[in-house]
């Protein structure tokens, strides 16, 4: 018997059938038919007893088996891959359907501005403290060099609870609290918080608003330090080429007192509707802490000096985002709030 021919025929037959097979099942069947223990190729091994040149027979057997195995493997892989692709096709989705709702919420820009101001000053080494909104006349006025019946009390129409207790009309009241606690040590602090005045609400006035008070006390603090500090703040808050300008003003608790203007970040000082053509925007009040204020809170004004400033939160937010009406902060229209999604401005 010519086993060589026999193997050749078997191989050819197998390869033909493999070639014709069109499904994975057929291929598995072929695998069983030829390569399983009782498969046609496997059974050929029974004939080894009959041949002399067992080695040659073995080699022929292996060669045949290998060709078939390889052909089957390739074909099976092809078939599997074809089937997977078919299945994947069936799993096709519309990638333009809406995503699941994992949006971060939005924040009333009021809080955004407070957080941002806090972060800026924390970066400059300030600590952030808070003080009471319901406070005593002593802290809101008297310790700030505004005795009872002083004309400066006209500057703020205050909401009183009784003759002694009131809703603070400015965050400057925390100056006295902070100094009382610091007991004569240097201070570098900001205090954000709500304030209240006996004011009618309109586009630019609100009976409730908020400020961030800043207070720095040490030996050798001067007005130039205040200017540099506020300029750094303005650059971070508005834009990096912002400049700061002082105008003389009056607050009973600072001397000298200044109104602080920043160069208009919208038109870069050329004049636009935001700055009413002047190129400058009034942004806050500040000054050197009045010697009487230092003295009343236990600091010797001959040794210590300091500066203080009060930033209007809504004012900053209105400028920064171009908000037209202060009442929007308190109206909480979700359409308004949802305009402030971005976590931090570039």
């Amino acid at each position: 018997m010519d086993y060589a021919l026999e193997f050749e025929n078997l191989k050819t037959k197998c390869l033909e059938e493999i070639n014709k097979a069109s499904s994975l099942k057929e291929l598995i069947d072929l695998k069983n038919k030829y390569l399983a223990k009782k498969g046609e190729i496997s059974l050929m091994m029974n004939h080894i007893r009959e041949v002399e040149d067992k080695k040659a027979f073995g080699e022929m057997y292996n060669a045949c088996r290998k060709s078939v195995e390889e052909a089957l493997d390739i074909k099976i892989k092809e078939e599997e891959s074809r089937k997977l692709n078919e299945d994947l096709k069936k799993e096709k989705i519309d990638i333009t359907l809406p995503g699941n709702n994992y949006q971060r919420g939005s924040v009333n820009p009021f809080f955004k501005v407070i957080n941002e101001i806090e972060d800026i000053f924390v970066g400059m080494g300030y600590s952030v403290e808070t003080g009471p909104e319901v406070d005593y006349d002593k802290y809101v006025f008297e310790l700030l060099n505004i005795p009872r019946d002083h004309p400066a009390r006209d500057m703020q129409d205050t909401l009183y609870i009784d003759s002694n207790l009131l809703l603070r009309s400015h965050t400057s009241s925390v100056q006295a609290h902070v100094m009382e606690k610091a007991k004569g040590k240097p201070i570098k602090v900001i205090c954000p918080g709500k304030t209240y005045r006996r004011d009618d609400d309109d586009m630019t006035h609100s009976h409730q608003f908020a400020q961030v008070e800043g207070l720095v006390i040490d030996k050798n603090i001067n007005l130039g330090n205040l200017k540099a500090t506020l300029e750094l703040f303005a650059k971070k808050m508005f834009s990096k080429d912002t400049k700061v300008r002082f105008r003389s003003s009056f607050f009973p608790f600072t001397e000298p007192s200044v109104e602080v203007d920043i160069s208009c970040f919208n038109c870069k000082g050329k004049g636009c509707s935001l700055c009413k053509g002047s190129g400058w925007i009034e942004i806050l009040g500040a000054g050197m802490v009045h010697p009487n204020v230092l003295k009343m809170s236990g600091y010797n004004p001959e040794i210590y000096s300091g500066f203080a400033f009060g930033i209007g939160i809504e004012r900053v937010a209105m400028l920064k985002y171009g908000i037209d009406d202060i009442r929007r902060f308190y109206q909480n229209d979700l359409r308004f709030i949802k305009e402030f999604k971005k976590v931090k401005e570039d």
Binding site: S127, G224, F246
Partner: peptide
């Protein structure tokens, strides 16, 4: 200074002991 104008003041950050800035725990 109100007479001379505020351009006459320096523009330097205060020199103080370095502190770690932080918000209150609350």
């Amino acid at each position: 200074i109100r007479y001379k104008g505020f351009d006459y003041i320096s523009n330097e950050l205060p020199v103080m002991e370095t502190t770690v800035g932080s918000v209150s725990t609350l």
